[in-house]
């Protein structure tokens, strides 16, 4: 990653910040592939946000809805995807892909954590 690289005009660049960023096409493909992969945890989060309060209402525990868990479930995929995109600006393709992959893994880990917490705090439903 570090070390001198030579650009077309023969000048030396010192680090990845100065290296030419990934081309638009490869960036777009990367965004799209990871958008699809992030979409499923986001879909799960949204569907929980919509369905769980209704289930709790029907079970007579409308006041015990774990809103913070539902919000984390929706916010985590969005924040981690956007964060990985922002941190990847101006970098080469590999660091971008690495950050998006780490964010995707973290999204899924958080989703499983949220589900487990929700089961723990769930009150007895009628």
């Amino acid at each position: 990653m570090s070390g001198a690289t030579t650009t077309d005009d023969g000048s030396d660049t010192l680090d990845t910040e100065d290296a030419p960023p990934a081309s638009l096409v490869s960036r777009a493909i990367l965004w799209l592939v990871f958008a699809i992969l992030y979409a499923y945890p986001l879909f799960e989060g949204i569907s929980n946000l919509i369905a769980l309060p209704a289930v709790y209402q029907a079970g007579g525990a409308g006041g015990a809805v774990p809103w913070y868990l539902l919000i984390i479930g929706v916010a985590a995929p969005v924040i981690l995807y956007a964060g990985a995109l922002l941190l990847g600006r101006g970098r080469e393709l590999f660091p971008r892909a690495l950050m998006l992959a780490a964010g995707l893994a973290a999204t899924n880990a958080m989703f499983l954590s949220v589900v487990q917490w929700a089961q723990l705090v769930q009150p007895a439903l009628k």
Binding site: P95, A102, A105, F111
Partner: peptide, 22 residues
């Protein structure tokens, strides 16, 4: 999801390790 959760720790560590050398 379970599989990527298992590798999440390794991925995050490697990402920080390779992208913060300086």
């Amino acid at each position: 999801g379970e599989f990527v959760a298992i590798v999440s720790g390794a991925l995050w560590y490697l990402t920080v390790l390779t992208l913060t050398p300086d």
